[in-house]
Design a protein around this nucleic acid. Structure first.
Lengths: 221, 221
DNA sequence: GACATCGACGAACAGCGTTCGCCACGAACG
DNA sequence: CGTTCGTGGCGAACGCTGTTCGTCGATGTC
């Protein structure tokens, strides 16, 4: 097949539809215009077609989002340097990072046992590191459950800031003001500890340390 | 048309619209028919009115769901017996229970710093117990953050089973079969540890123990 | 050359959240 | 007592949504 006639040139180089192309278009829209803009019509328009065409490759919107989540997890580096614990820490942090970068994707991970190819690779790596740490099978299995839950939750919380106006600091400052106006007799501890509640610091790193320490110290059953 | 004098009596004792009534109607629909059925039109019908009438008392659907979440949290008992750690454990477990009972409400808690009156009461109580445990202000503050995140996530995961057909065991069995069919060379750890991954046991209690142990052992900064 | 298969897609359906503008009613005011 | 005014209630509508159906055309096979 040689150079196309002019009629095809109007829309040049229209890539053929495919599941991959749809997933990538979805991610592009999600990153550019947010979760509300991620509609089947909008994805179809990005690919220069109609919404009905998508359903050949994608069962429905949920299926599309699950595929997008797994695509996002493909970017998680599975290997790192350091002790097993440092590597595990880095792996979980990278997973949170990858999910929280795309608004709303973490919520998908929260509601289902992971089955995506890349999600499973992450989990497999987590299991390997936990076993390397000397944990027994059951504790390692439950730990990976807990770490997955925590990753999804942390990412969901983080990506929620993308939804609301963007600025995380603004949202936190609003909450601080709200807490400052609470009646001290009804909420004595919140009132007393308000400076600590809104103190800056790396809570994500601390949270992960808490989890890892707790896991090491708490054998299942 | 024919104005029916009897029509007022046909639906007797029609309570006047109020924010409380709307919230309660929403919870009733959510529990009875699920998250998909929770539409403004459906809530309005439950109260024998039209959707536009709701917007006098409720800003929008998100506002309604936030109010429903706080109403659900009103049922969390704030006091229990035992050591501070046992009380804290019970408090968190009760919070998860209350949220997971209503499909989709936990997702609301994940995306925002809590501001509802009842949510704040729970948090205030958590802070009190953590301080009773001897933690410094910052660690207690970060711990309450982490516990809140974990509660919402655990409840969201739990309530997701309400969405899918209902039976948790069915979903888990499906996942087990899926994992069994994975290529062992690509996912060696998952394949090897599959029995442990799907082993029964009280993972929620274990997860909470992990968190509490980790918190006690990991001072912030 | 005839046939079967399957991707593409225009059109439509049923439903959604939310807004607008009008109605009725009760309180406030002169 | 009459009038005005604010406000809860709500019918109707707008602009969307996810998804399905049936048709069309191209491609690969016998």
């Amino acid at each position: 097949m040689t150079p196309e006639p002019i009629s095809r040139r109007a829309r040049p180089a229209k890539a053929p539809l495919s599941r991959e192309a749809i997933v990538r278009a979805g991610l592009a829209i999600l990153d550019r215009d947010g979760l509300d803009a991620l509609t089947m019509r909008r994805v179809a328009k990005e690919l220069d077609t109609g919404p009905a065409s998508l359903y050949v490759y994608v069962a429905n919107r949920d299926d599309l989002m699950a595929a997008m989540l797994d695509e996002a997890l493909a970017r998680v580096p599975l290997t790192a340097e350091g002790t097993w614990r440092e590597q595990l820490h880095a792996l979980v942090a990278a997973t949170v990072e990858a999910m929280s970068r795309h608004e709303g994707l973490a919520a998908v991970a929260l509601g289902a046992i992971p089955t995506g190819a890349n999600a499973l690779l992450v989990i497999d790596r987590m299991l390997a590191l936990l076993k390397q740490g000397g944990l027994d099978d059951i504790t390692a299995a439950w730990a990976v459950d807990l770490l997955h839950l925590h990753s999804a939750a942390a990412a969901a919380e983080q990506s929620a800031y993308l939804t609301k106006g963007g600025k995380e600091e603004t949202v936190v400052a609003d909450a601080d003001r709200h807490y400052a106006a609470l009646p001290a007799d009804r909420y004595p501890m919140i009132t007393a500890l308000r400076p600590a509640l809104f103190s800056p610091g790396d809570r994500d790193t601390w949270g992960l340390d808490v989890l890892l320490s707790g896991i090491l110290q708490t054998p299942a059953r």
